[in-house]
Design a protein around this nucleic acid. Structure first.
Length: 812
RNA sequence: GCCGGGGUGGCGAAACGGCAGACGCGGGGGACUUAAAAUCCCAGGCCCCGUGAGGGGCGUGCGGGUUCGAAUCCCGCCCCCGGCACCA
């Protein structure tokens, strides 16, 4: 660790030499090995592991620099810190790139990982590489398979024939979460998805729908919580039965108070009952409508601007309250995938039902007072038999009670959340560990036979069928139960399975007996602070929460949430405030920046731009300010190392500025306000400059100040701080030093400046002894000519005094 | 439509209900230099008065309110960004 001194050119800081030297020294000293079973409090800092796309762009730097800075800060604050890294190495881009270049996805992926590891080292990050996790390796993905088998045993994994979303470009099914926007596009490639009916594997995330709505005890951004809450989409309502001759169907409604206003019912065209109740006269029209509705894409069907259409089935249901026959229609505005796939239509109090009734001449009764029809608000219930006169809420409860008493209805909760479709018809993923036997049916691969290895030589080009289907050696196997010939499942898992539990793998990344070691998990987990992009607000972050709850119910962990605190970085835009992209020509390459400015400057500038969750445009001139700061810092350091003067009248002021800075920077670091932490350090350095200008040259004080400043800047500029620490005579690594503590005594001043207001307007400032009694402050204020002028001879009727800050004189 | 986050100088931004604009960028003035770069110093919201030191008014998207005092809290709007949406 005892690095040689770097020769400097007339005091100019040579970042290239210093950074190279310390990066090598840190590796040699194994600086960032995670402590094993320390007696200091633990801190698990986690940043979302990157996808090995080939090169880090400046957005990765923006994401990772504060995470690294915070991990370093927590270590200096006395914690044992776990700060691991790995690669999210399965997934479509590897296949696509491999197809384009004719190389194997593994070769492409592992080559990228090598390059990205080197880039991460140039950032000066303190990742513990001994714990690196690469998800495309069998040592990792075997545990995906193991989890799948545990889920299967518990009914948390199941196979179902269902209408699913298919991306025609990626040639695979997708989870509902991977279909985005009003026009339902593939999250990855932006192609509109189509609907297919397929047998697919699902994880039963809906079992945790209610629990996923609770964020108690979590310090997560409001927008992430809101997005997940929206996505889960909980509605409380009533489910009840309509009878149609010998048949019946259930409907779900959130407005049971409007039941008397139900003048017809609507089934989704795909509803299984349609075929059984349709009358002979209507059969042809219904069949025509249904086949057209199924042929239409979701985009057309979901359009809110189109006319509502439907067809009468010829059947009548019995209104559960009035006993009146009401017509049963089919219409594509009722979705088979939500609720029961059937609704009671209340045209007087629902806009969609109103439009439909208007178009087809159905009656539109009013049962709630207020407004023009359709009136969708609450109010007094009318035309509702015995419930007439109640307000909506009372009627809601009373009608629901009656339905329940009569055994035809009950209060239920519906969620928009769907189970997580994990099957993918692609090559580069974890094989699903299931075997199909003609005799025994679906047979799980025995745990002892894991991992089911992804065959390295399969033809991986996408065809719409699973590539593994064409790999005979993989496909054909024997049944673990009867020993007869059998076939393997050829779909692979969604890569979001990999990232749902990787935070656990880091605690014991080489464990061969279990996905993770229970003792190590109890020591480190859950994650204390998790950082990453907002784009994962629903996908990864919800899946990870689901997995954690499932792991808890499997008895694997004792906590219910994976990460206690979440912080999302914003997006760094190009200099023209547009999204960075090659086609726009506004991409900022971090390697070029590091070559030109050094890692420390890039790190500091990215944190100085503004609040981290806000992102913002790159500013190639702004970075020069950080370069100047770096050089000033360096000169002040050399200066302090050489200073030999004694005590000076300005000492107290500088010492106070130091302790103010310590208090400020500590608070800013705690709350992830890196931009203001850096400005506080700049202010302190400016104070050092003023002290020198005033003639101060106390060697002892300057070294004390610069030592604290060096330690405070160490998490942000790790290389320069390490070099400065040596120049100031420090021993050991600066990164193993204790964070400076503010000293309240040093913050005390003899005299303070108090603002004097008259009627809330600032009129003057007076200097008084610290903690001066109110009388004295008031007297000083009244002694001011400016204050007297503002008072204009009127006496103060009221005096508000904030000690050491402000006095406000109120006149009539 | 529902939900969440925003709106402060030329720009990026600061500000436990208590001096709005810290810190930095850019531009302006000056020092050093033959000159430039680098570095350092000064001024720096807008408007008005004053030759000047200085003084006054206005000012945090808009309109109200609470308060001795509001960028900050409350009510009602406008605009921008993000999420959800024929979800019954």
């Amino acid at each position: 660790m005892a690095g040689e001194r770097v020769e400097t050119d007339e005091g100019r800081y040579d970042y290239a030499q210093v950074e190279r030297k310390w990066q090598e020294a840190w590796v040699a000293a194994d600086m960032y090995r995670t402590p094993v079973a320390g007696n200091r409090p633990k801190y698990y800092m986690l940043t979302m592991y990157p996808y090995p796309s080939g090169d880090f762009h400046v957005g990765h730097w923006y994401a990772m620099t504060p995470a690294d800075t915070y991990a370093r800060y927590k270590r200096m604050r006395g914690h044992d810190v776990l700060f691991p890294i790995g690669f999210d190495a399965f997934g479509l881009p590897a296949e696509n790139a491999a197809i384009k270049r004719g190389i194997h996805p593994r070769v492409w992926t592992m080559g990228n990982i090598d390059r990205m590891r080197a880039q991460l080292r140039t950032m000066g990050t303190m990742f513990d590489w001994a714990r690196e996790v690469v998800t495309c390796q069998p040592e990792y993905y075997r545990w995906n398979q193991w989890f799948f088998l545990q889920f299967l045993k518990r009914g948390l994994a199941y196979k179902k024939h269902a209408p699913v979303d298919w991306c025609p470009s990626c040639q695979t099914t997708l989870a509902r979460e991977q279909v985005v926007g009003e026009d339902r596009r593939c999250e990855r490639c932006d192609t509109p998805v189509i609907r297919k009916d397929l047998d697919q594997w699902f994880f039963r995330i809906t079992q945790y729908a209610d629990e996923l709505l609770s964020f108690d005890g979590l310090d997560w951004p409001e927008r992430v919580k809101a997005m997940q809450t929206n996505w889960i989409g909980r509605s409380e309502g009533t489910q009840f039965r309509f009878e149609v001759a010998e048949e019946s169907f259930d409907v779900f409604t959130t407005r049971i108070d409007t039941l008397y206003g139900c003048s017809f019912a609507v089934l989704a065209p795909e509803h299984p009952l349609v075929e059984r109740i349709v009358t002979a006269e209507q059969r042809e029209a219904v069949a025509a409508y249904t086949s057209q509705a199924t042929r239409e894409s979701d985009t057309e069907r979901m359009s809110t601007t189109r006319e509502r259409t439907g067809v009468f089935t010829g059947a009548y249901a019995k209104h559960p309250m009035t006993g009146q026959p009401i017509p049963v229609w089919i219409a594509d505005y009722v979705l088979v995938t939500y609720g029961t796939g059937a609704i009671m239509a209340v045209p007087g109090h629902d806009e969609r039902d109103f439009d439909f009734a208007t178009r087809y001449g159905l009656p539109i009764p009013r049962v709630i007072e207020g407004g023009e029809l359709p009136y969708t608000g609450d109010g007094k219930v009318v035309n509702s038999g015995p419930y007439t006169g109640l307000d909506s809420e009372a009627a809601w409860n009373a009608i629901a009670d009656e339905l329940e008493r009569r055994g035809i209805g009950r209060g239920t909760v519906q969620y928009r959340l769907r189970d997580w479709l994990i099957s993918r018809q692609r090559y580069w993923g974890t094989p699903i560990p299931v075997i199909y036997c003609d005799k025994c049916g679906i047979v799980p691969v025995p745990e002892a036979d894991l991992p089911v290895i992804l065959p390295p030589d399969a033809e991986f080009r996408p065809t719409g069928e699973s590539p593994l289907l064409h790999d005979q050696a993989f496909l054909n196997t024997t049944c673990p139960q009867c020993g007869g010939p059998a076939r393997r499942e050829t779909d692979t898992m969604d890569t979001f399975v990999d990232s749902s539990w990787y935070m656990c793998r880091y605690v014991s990344p080489h464990d061969e007996a279990a996905p993770f070691d229970r003792l190590a998990a109890d020591q480190w987990l859950p994650v204390d602070t998790y950082t990453g992009g907002i784009e994962h607000a629903i996908l990864h972050l919800m899946y990870m929460r689901f997995f954690t709850k499932a792991m808890r119910d499997l008895g694997l962990v004792s906590f219910s949430e994976p990460a206690l605190r979440l912080r999302n970085q914003g997006i760094i835009l190009g200099e023209n405030s547009e999204k960075m992209s090659k086609s726009r020509g506004n991409v900022v390459n971090p390697d070029d920046l590091v070559a030109r400015y050094g890692a420390d400057v890039v790190r500091m500038f990215l944190m100085f731009i503004g609040p981290w969750d806000q992102g913002g445009p790159w500013n190639s001139r702004g970075i020069e300010g950080i370069v100047r700061f770096q050089q000033r810092l360096w000169r002040s350091c050399l200066d302090a190392a050489a200073a030999s003067g004694g005590a000076h009248p300005a000492d107290a002021g500088l010492r106070r500025a130091l302790h103010q800075a310590i208090a400020r920077v500590s608070g800013d670091m705690d709350r992830f306000a890196f931009n203001t932490a850096i400005s506080a350090l700049m202010t302190l350095l400016n104070e050092v400059g003023s002290y020198r200008d005033a003639g101060g040259n106390s060697g002892e004080l300057l070294r004390e100040v610069m030592s604290a400043l060096t330690r405070m800047i160490a998490p942000m500029a790790p290389h320069q701080a390490e070099e400065m620490w040596r120049r100031l005579g420090g021993s050991g690594s600066v990164h193993l030093q204790a964070w400076p503590e503010p000293d309240a005594d040093q913050l005390r001043q003899e005299r303070v400046t108090v603002v004097v207001q008259v009627n809330g307007k600032v009129r003057d400032r007076v200097e008084v002894p610290v903690d001066a009694p109110e009388d004295e402050v008031r007297a000083a204020a009244l002694a001011s000519a400016k204050v007297q002028a503002a008072l204009g001879g009127r006496p103060a009727t009221k005096v508000i005094a904030v000690p050491n800050r402000l006095v406000n004189l109120v006149v009539g």
